[in-house]
């Protein structure tokens, strides 16, 4: 079941015989990758759980309008990224919390999260990541942890390849500085 390619799954949608079955295949194929991508952005498991569910509901609502000339996995990542950013923005709006305080809250979550198990250097590394600007952090995550190519990343984030390379470079330098200073 998991061996079907993206094109084959999309073909099942287009045939219209059993869209629920095709959707289930898509969820099972990408749920873990999307979850970890979201989790690295929102940090907290409960928030990531909300975001992943909302992401799949949006996918279900819009899959009929998806153009098969695009890659489905970049489309999925784009929806997931936007949903994760929306959640952080809602938190800022809801509690009138300035930007820096949300990042501080995420740092506190890392320190107290039951579903976070790390060595000292891993924890230090995650806290250093949270000191990056939001978009720079997402670029770093996609490149460093998921090994995504810049052109795919460009489709996900709607940013030029050149800007993404610069952003990743700045992120690496900042993290090095933080890790070596402390």
């Amino acid at each position: 079941m998991g061996d079907l390619s993206d094109k084959e799954i999309l073909a099942l949608f287009e045939q219209g015989g059993n869209p629920n079955y095709a959707f289930n295949l898509l969820v099972r194929k990408y749920q873990e990758k999307l979850y970890w991508h979201i989790r690295r952005i929102v940090i907290d498991h409960d928030d990531a759980n909300d975001v992943i569910q909302n992401t799949w509901i949006k996918v279900w609502q819009n899959i009929a309008g998806f153009r098969s000339d695009s890659k489905i996995y970049t489309w999925l990542y784009r929806i997931a990224t936007n949903e994760a950013i929306s959640l952080l923005n809602k938190k800022r709006t809801k509690f009138f919390v300035p930007l820096v305080n949300v990042e501080r809250t995420l740092s506190e979550t890392i320190k107290s999260d039951d579903y976070f198990s790390a060595t000292d250097i891993q924890k230090k590394f995650q806290l250093a990541l949270l000191k990056l600007p939001e978009k720079q952090r997402i670029v770093f995550n996609l490149k460093y942890f998921e090994g995504m190519q810049y052109d795919a990343m460009s489709e996900v984030l709607g940013t030029s390849v050149g800007a993404l390379k610069a952003s990743y470079h700045h992120a690496v330098k900042k993290i090095e500085k933080i890790m070596l200073l402390d």
Partner: peptide, 27 residues
């Protein structure tokens, strides 16, 4: 090697129950 290890965890059986939960919500 150490930094690329994912320190985040999920509750046991989370990824088995998630597709069912999503299928329930979209229906």
């Amino acid at each position: 090697n150490e930094l690329k290890i994912n320190p985040f965890q999920v509750p046991e059986g989370y990824f088995d129950s998630l597709p069912v939960l999503i299928a329930d919500r979209v229906s």
